[in-house]
Simulated assay, not measured.
Amino acid sequence: MKRQGTLVRWEKERGFGFIRCAEVSADVFVHLRDFADRGLTPQVGMTLTFDEIHVGGKGPRAVAVQAAGAMPRREQQQPRRPAASPRPRTDRCRDAAPSSSSSSLPMMLLLPAYAALLGYGVWTTRIPPIALGVLLLISLLTFVVYGVDKNAATAGRWRTAESTLHLLSLIGGWPGAWCAQRLFRHKVRKTSFMAGYWATVLAHMAAVGAWVGKFLPAGLLAL
């Protein structure tokens, strides 16, 4: 059934919000991908028409969302423009390859250096062997948190704060974060986030290097 309501909340960064409709008891969840006009910029206060659905026992959700008064888009009524020649798939692969390899190269250098630093720290007794297990668990935890956040982004649920992801990287989970970014294709296109991520990697490496190099007092570990 077609309904009409007012957009009362919109989370721009997360791409979802809520519509208030007099005919529905609860605010209706709406995701950016459910707008019929992908060029529309949702704004709080705008009047929207939508179809109400219920999925998996959750609250009401809006689909086929349009600004009130907007005409449905009918591609067959629009004049056809000459189709641009598609770029060969091989060209796209060549374009993507430098970006992937350029981001992987620093990590391929950092991981062996990090392993050597930890190994030297254990050999000199500056790092207890149990710390290696703890760091591995933190990396695994970070990997899982990234996966959960990617799933939440796809489903339109509440997201993990970027500060939490950075904190996990800073305390030693950055290898797991890097693996999750590549496997889930998550956050890699956001320049500001990736800049923060690399800052946590360098800060962690610097802290471990200072500890192993005895630039930090041994008594600090007891704190």
Rank of each mutant, 00 (worst) to 15 (best):
M1Y: 10
R3E: 11
Q4R: 14
G5F: 05
L7V: 13
W10G: 07
E11S: 08
K12G: 13
E13H: 12
G17P: 14
G17L: 06
F18L: 10
R20C: 12
E23N: 11
V24G: 10
V28R: 02
L32C: 04
D34F: 00
D34Q: 03
F35A: 10
F35G: 07
D37H: 15
L40P: 00
L40Q: 14
G45P: 07
G45E: 09
L48W: 13
F50V: 04
H54C: 12
P60S: 06
R61S: 12
R61L: 05
A62K: 06
A64M: 01
A64Q: 12
Q66N: 01
R73V: 08
Q76I: 09
Q77R: 11
Q77T: 12
Q77S: 03
R80Q: 14
R81H: 09
P82Y: 00
A83D: 04
P86C: 03
R87C: 04
R89F: 14
T90S: 10
R92H: 15
C93N: 03
C93Q: 12
R94N: 01
R94F: 03
D95E: 15
D95G: 02
D95T: 07
A96M: 07
P98I: 07
S99L: 08
S99C: 01
S101V: 15
S101D: 02
S104C: 09
L105S: 05
L105Y: 14
P106W: 03
L109I: 07
P112M: 08
A113T: 01
A115K: 02
L117Q: 07
L117C: 05
Y120M: 04
V122T: 05
W123R: 14
T124C: 02
T124R: 09
T125E: 03
R126P: 00
I127F: 05
I130C: 00
I130W: 13
G133W: 10
G133V: 09
L135M: 06
L135V: 02
L137F: 06
L140V: 14
L140D: 00
L140P: 00
V145H: 06
N151R: 14
A152R: 12
A153M: 09
A155R: 15
W158F: 13
R159H: 11
R159P: 06
R159A: 02
A161E: 08
T164F: 13
L165P: 12
H166N: 08
L167M: 14
S169E: 01
G173L: 11
P175R: 11
P175C: 09
A177C: 13
C179W: 14
A180F: 10
A180Q: 12
A180T: 07
Q181G: 12
R182P: 03
R182V: 12
R185V: 02
H186L: 09
K187R: 10
K190I: 09
A195L: 11
Y197H: 06
A199K: 03
V201A: 05
A203V: 14
A206W: 06
A206C: 15
A207N: 01
V208G: 03
V208N: 03
W211L: 12
W211A: 07
V212T: 07
G213E: 00
K214F: 01
K214Y: 02
F215T: 02
F215Y: 10
L216M: 06
A218R: 03
G219P: 03
L220M: 13
L220W: 14
A222V: 05
A222S: 15
